[in-house]
Simulated assay, not measured.
Amino acid sequence: MQGIHLGNVVLGFVAFLFSLCVHEFAHAWTTERFGDDTGRYQGRITLDPRAHIDPIGSILFPLLGLIGGGFIFGWAKPVEVNPNRWKNKVVANIVVSAAGPISNLLLALGAVLLLKLLVVTGGVGRGDVLSMFSGHELANPQALLGLAEPVLIFLRMMIVVNLLLAVFNMLPIPPLDGSHILSSLLSVVSVPLMEAYESLRPYGFFIIILASLTGLLSQIYLPLMRFFLVLLFSLL
């Protein structure tokens, strides 16, 4: 498949938007487990996109990335939390922050298991699955009553998008989820070290942009994505 296809853009956008909603839902649902119901009062414990989307981060940026065929980048409205209501602040901050990326890993795993089911039941061949991930045409495009290609494209996007969201958000750069985890760990090891790290938070966005422009960001997350892809595809 060469060039940009409208169908691929639509499938990719749906996969990305759904994955963002699950990510934010996981944060809101998990923080309530620790005694903070802020997310529920703000209507964030839902998969309804209207509760989570940011017009720029959830629509414009992802569509531009998909149309341009490049890096898919975007964000949803962050779930607000009230740490004062958490029963165990350190553990809660770590678990609540990790909930979003973990939900994305589970979505990626679910997509791989669906691919496995299709292969086992004979809906598609294992070669078709591998071909889609290597950018080649399907060996049997009429499989699944002619729906093999869009189904595999969607599942491929679900895997790639969710691994990207999981890996990217776990990076310890403010305001990403990984920064809250690292900050909580540092608060146990050394409060002054945690405070020094927290002083970088206002500059987090610029750090991300600089790391992206210099190629440092891709050098970090691409090997991690490859690791998870190999791990997931070992299940096929």
Rank of each mutant, 00 (worst) to 15 (best):
A211Y: 12
I59G: 07
M1E: 15
L105A: 02
P202D: 04
L145R: 15
S19C: 08
Q219G: 14
V161T: 05
L171Y: 06
R126S: 13
W75C: 09
L232C: 06
E24V: 03
V151K: 04
V90Y: 00
L231R: 09
V91Q: 02
W29T: 00
V161G: 00
C21G: 09
I207W: 01
L63T: 10
L117A: 13
I94K: 00
L155M: 02
S58T: 13
F205M: 10
R40K: 11
L213R: 14
V230R: 11
P101M: 05
R50L: 13
G39T: 01
P174C: 05
V96R: 03
L144W: 04
L235D: 05
A15D: 08
F13V: 11
T30G: 02
L217V: 15
V112P: 02
G100R: 06
P101Y: 03
I53K: 07
G100V: 06
P78Y: 05
K77W: 09
D37R: 01
P78Q: 08
K87G: 10
V22W: 08
L165Y: 12
S97P: 04
G74T: 08
W75M: 04
G12K: 09
H136A: 15
V90M: 01
L200V: 12
S199Y: 04
Q219N: 14
L138H: 13
L17V: 14
G3E: 13
F206H: 07
E32D: 12
A139T: 15
S131K: 13
H136C: 05
H180M: 03
Y221H: 15
R226Q: 15
G135I: 06
L117F: 10
V95L: 09
I209C: 08
P192A: 08
I181V: 13
N104L: 05
L107N: 02
N104T: 04
L11H: 06
F18M: 14
P150Y: 02
S58W: 07
N8R: 10
L138K: 14
T30V: 12
I207L: 10
L130P: 07
I208T: 03
S234V: 09
L109Y: 02
L185E: 04
E80F: 00
F133E: 07
N84G: 05
